[in-house]
Amino acid sequence: MSTVTEIDSAAPAAVRPARPPYKVTGRRVLRSEWAKLWSLRSTWITLGLGLLFLIAFGLIAAAHYKSSYDGGHLRPDDANSTALDISLFGTNFAQLALGVLGVLVTAGEYSTGMIRSTLAAVPRRLPVLWSKAAVFGVVALGVSLVGVFVAFPIVSGIVSGTPAALSFSHAGVARSLLGAGLYLGLVGVIGTALGAWLRSVAGGISVLVASLMLVPGLIELLPSSWQDNISPYLPSNAGQAMFALTHDSTTLSPGAGLLVFLAWTALALGGAAYRLVKTDA
């Protein structure tokens, strides 16, 4: 005890040597979130699954279509299918993988306690949310684009010579594939936003699955005049409009679909930002 007291009086003003010029910047928070994403095994596994779903399910669907056609017992549902629809068959499954990983990116920090370290380093908080959403959105977009652009040529090759045959140069194909990638990237962003908003992995996944998969079914219980007004604007339907090859009066155009889906994304991010700033970590 006495030694400490001596030191205390010897260094009164606490003059310390020049300190390194550390500073928190937006770019550095992005760098940190990038490093955090890739330093977890679950990221690699889930992204791998997402990619696998996109490619493998497209190929399986194509093989199934081809054998049905060759055997002459094509199901009526499949009669109007195109190589594009078939190659995007895996989108439904990939959106689950990417959305769930998005939820994990944010809600996982709350369930583990990591959020305390994160917010101690970036106490202004909002840069963390924007960085997580941006980093994961870009990664999900990249993985999805790889998936759809790998799946389509192979599927197209498998179903060539059938009514579903469609080449890459066909009008709208490239736009649809880009739309599908963009849709999945935004699903990832919505996942991160829901995770940050609800701060619970289970809650985030539930809301994600409900809004993308269950709500369209529930809407069918409404009177049909309501359905027509509401249905196209649901996240799932607006999202599908982004990558559908053909559009009719009951669906939005790809551009309108993108705008509506962006609005849903902004809503989720807004809720997440509000809670992040307003409530204790």
């Binding site: 490093a35 330093s39 583990t112 306690g113 990591m114 101690a120 970036v122």
Partner: peptide, 28 residues
């Protein structure tokens, strides 16, 4: 520099990666 009572790490990340992620935010 704070050590809080409750755990503030992600159990799936290595010690080095955890520290490095913290360091990136400040350019450390």
């Amino acid at each position: 520099g704070a050590l809080l009572e409750a755990k503030s790490i992600h159990p799936g990340r290595s010690a080095f990666d955890h520290l490095m992620a913290q360091a990136y935010t400040h350019g450390i």
